[in-house]
Amino acid sequence: MSSTTNYILGVYDDEDEVLHAVSEVKSKGIKIEDVFTPFPIHGLDRAVGHERTRLPIAAFMFGVLGLTCALSLISYTMVFDWPMIIGGKDFFALPNWIPVSFEGTVLFTAFGLVITFCISNNLYPGNQPDLLDLRITDDKFVMAINVDKNKKVSADDIKKALKDSGAIEVNVR
């Protein structure tokens, strides 16, 4: 969220109130930018209308990459670079490679997902978070509504809708 955008913030005390307020505000034709909470609320992402995350697809891709890299490394070292007969087994002994292949898959998936998550959420060194209200890290729930994206609804109507839905405070940022 950029700092030049105008937001109307509704501050709530209770997670049940903010969950109920999301449906009330959306029923009045107001588009909600995001809801910030100090802890996860079950069902809030669906109520706001967030899309389902694509991290499982990324996890599968990183797993396939890890498996491919592990099998490529093992086959290169054990078959082409330095073939040795160990315990009378063939050079290309695929059942013996399963543990290393599994560990490579898990390693690439874990590190790949952590890096992907950090990049997608702008969590990198030196980045300053854009907190709309400092109390969201403690005990308040904040519903942020972008005024520029709600052209059909006036700012006064948005403030009234937030107050009617149970907001203890309505701020403009």
Rank of each mutant, 00 (worst) to 15 (best):
Ser2Thr: 12
Ser2Glu: 10
Ser2Gly: 13
Ser3Gln: 14
Ser3Ala: 12
Thr4Leu: 14
Asn6Met: 10
Ile8Val: 15
Leu9Val: 10
Leu9Asp: 06
Leu9Tyr: 08
Gly10Thr: 03
Gly10Gln: 04
Gly10Ile: 04
Tyr12Thr: 01
Tyr12Trp: 12
Asp13His: 09
Asp14His: 13
Glu15Ser: 13
Val18Gln: 01
Leu19Asp: 04
Leu19His: 06
Ala21Glu: 10
Ala21Tyr: 05
Ala21Leu: 03
Val22Arg: 01
Glu24Leu: 12
Ser27Phe: 03
Ser27Arg: 08
Ser27His: 12
Gly29Ser: 08
Lys31Val: 14
Lys31Phe: 02
Ile32Leu: 10
Ile32Asn: 12
Glu33Trp: 02
Asp34Asn: 14
Val35Gln: 13
Pro38Cys: 02
Phe39Met: 09
Pro40Gln: 13
Ile41Pro: 06
Ile41Glu: 10
His42Lys: 15
His42Cys: 10
Gly43Arg: 06
Leu44Lys: 01
Asp45His: 09
Asp45Lys: 13
Asp45Val: 02
His50Cys: 08
Glu51Gln: 04
Glu51Pro: 01
Arg52Glu: 15
Arg52Asp: 09
Thr53Ile: 00
Leu55Ser: 11
Leu55Ala: 13
Pro56Leu: 06
Pro56Val: 08
Ala59Lys: 05
Leu65Tyr: 02
Leu65Asn: 01
Gly66Asp: 05
Leu67Tyr: 08
Ala70Gly: 01
Ser72Arg: 03
Ser72His: 07
Leu73Gly: 07
Ile74Thr: 01
Tyr76Glu: 05
Thr77Pro: 03
Met78Ser: 12
Val79Arg: 00
Phe80Cys: 00
Trp82Ala: 07
Pro83Ala: 08
Pro83Cys: 07
Ile85Asn: 10
Ile86Ala: 01
Lys89Val: 09
Asp90Arg: 04
Phe92Gly: 01
Ala93Asn: 05
Ala93Gln: 05
Ala93Ile: 03
Ala93Ser: 02
Leu94Asn: 02
Leu94Gln: 02
Pro95Val: 00
Pro95Trp: 04
Pro95Asp: 05
Pro95Gly: 00
Asn96Leu: 03
Asn96Pro: 02
Asn96Glu: 00
Asn96Asp: 01
Ile98Cys: 00
Pro99Glu: 09
Ser101Ile: 02
Gly104Lys: 04
Gly104Asn: 08
Gly104Tyr: 05
Thr105Asp: 01
Thr105Arg: 00
Leu107Arg: 08
Thr109Tyr: 06
Phe111Leu: 11
Gly112His: 07
Val114Ile: 14
Val114Leu: 14
Val114Asn: 10
Phe117Asp: 01
Phe117Ser: 06
Cys118Arg: 10
Cys118Glu: 02
Ile119Trp: 07
Ile119Gly: 02
Ile119Thr: 04
Ser120Trp: 08
Ser120Thr: 08
Asn121Met: 06
Asn122Leu: 13
Leu123Ser: 06
Asn127Val: 14
Asn127Ser: 15
Pro129Leu: 11
Leu132Ile: 12
Leu134His: 07
Thr137Lys: 15
Lys140Arg: 15
Lys140Trp: 02
Phe141Gly: 02
Val142His: 06
Val142Glu: 00
Val142Leu: 10
Ile145Val: 15
Asn146Asp: 15
Val147Tyr: 11
Lys149Ser: 14
Lys149Ile: 03
Lys151Glu: 11
Ser154Trp: 09
Ala155Val: 12
Ala155Ile: 13
Ala155Glu: 12
Asp156Arg: 07
Asp157Gly: 03
Lys160Tyr: 11
Lys160Cys: 06
Leu162Val: 05
Asp164Cys: 08
Ser165Leu: 10
Ala167Arg: 04
Glu169Gln: 13
Val170Tyr: 03
Asn171Asp: 09
Val172Ile: 14
Val172His: 10
Val172Asn: 12
